[in-house]
Design a protein around this nucleic acid. Sequence first.
DNA 1: CCCTCTAGGATTGTCGACAATTTGCGTCTC
DNA 2: GAGACGCAAATTGTCGACAATCCTAGAGGG
Lengths: 239, 239
Amino acid sequence: MALPPGMLPEIEPVSRESTAAVIARQLRDAIMTGALPPGTQLGETELASRFQVSRGPLREAMQHLVSEGLLRSERHRGLFVIDLEPGDVYDIYAARSAIERAAMIRAVRGGERDRIADVLERTVAEMATAASEDDPSALSTADLRFHEALINASGSKRLVRMARTLLIETRMCLTALQSTYQRVEERVEEHTKLIQALRDGDEETALALLDSHMEDAVQRLAPGTSLIEGHAPPVPGNG
Amino acid sequence: MALPPGMLPEIEPVSRESTAAVIARQLRDAIMTGALPPGTQLGETELASRFQVSRGPLREAMQHLVSEGLLRSERHRGLFVIDLEPGDVYDIYAARSAIERAAMIRAVRGGERDRIADVLERTVAEMATAASEDDPSALSTADLRFHEALINASGSKRLVRMARTLLIETRMCLTALQSTYQRVEERVEEHTKLIQALRDGDEETALALLDSHMEDAVQRLAPGTSLIEGHAPPVPGNG
DNA sequence: CCCTCTAGGATTGTCGACAATTTGCGTCTC
DNA sequence: GAGACGCAAATTGTCGACAATCCTAGAGGG
């Protein structure tokens, strides 16, 4: 009766995703890539007609994004794409540092270092490809995929959940300040060294590299602020 | 024209919270305290009539809780309160450890150690009160308020956001396994020592105490698993 | 000329009803 | 008696319309 296992390995329910989830994902991508710039107001009526759905599912998608922190809701006013202030850059990278540090620890101490390293190396290859094609957007995407893969490799449901929004916010930063990126070789090399430390099981080095990776990014995106120094950034706005 | 600042400091819009937010908060509390045990199915129609609202706002509240990770949605089936498996205890505390560690670092390095320590001491006083009245539920609540206060004190929007669900899940653990708690004096003392280290600006000690605090909790709630050892728990289920 | 008040338009918040899908039970067949 | 098929009840998913609220523009008065 049952089909022999191994056949049709990719069979899945026809409509696995809810309508709201599809809409949410599309909006997420649009926000992430800058198609919907920070501060943009999203009218429910307009979006509903654009997506060819009623306002019900659309509102659900919006609520989802609000609770994720990508949209900010002003009651009876509307929904707006969040705009990142300088202080937010610091906050995002401090939070990412905490999450990825934990993920790295679990990756190093778990028993699958080589398998994880292989996965990560594939994303670095993507970075190299994007770099050779001089595609900054693809490069940023590949960069984030590296970090996403690292967090997935931790095997922690909650680290993955918490990181989702952080990575999108990171992408927003990179999109907004795309001018200030370092040399691509350096960027690739930092990740490569990270993988090597992971493969060697050298936790201390891996964590140190991760910290400096974050620190570099912060100083490049928000000059004058520092993670390790520990002071809150000059512009507060994070309470 | 404008009222002199300082007068009427607590004036706020009449209905600051949306209906969905009110419902979500009530359900959160119910889940947290165990009034809605894990696995419970939440019927939209029933809840709507209970809250005296339409299914629209109610669904929004549910979606919010789903994206927070407290409810799990099965399409065309219904919404269920998540049930925590043994592996989740490990996962929750590993994630909390990452978050609170980052919060502690920012609290120690920021310039308001004493003010923060005072706030934290107030929550420890709550713990002592609950302990003297032999109220385990209030004790757990006060315990979590300590950690919530610590994270708030970090001043990081994102740490606060990520911790919200974690603390609720922690409360679910404590509710489910309320039998296995340590001596109250010990419990209070651990927090007191944490505050002292913070007040002294002794980052290393504070972090070490925090780690051991988490490690203790994990070993008490899920015997046989360890955070520092680094192995994934025997029962996986976290991918 | 500036401030205030009012009317208009537009947007969100809420509701009740209809459609689609799933699950469980009853029945029929072998 | 066991398995498969089909039907029906219940639940979620979706829709369109109405009500409440807020911003804006313009007229009126000081």
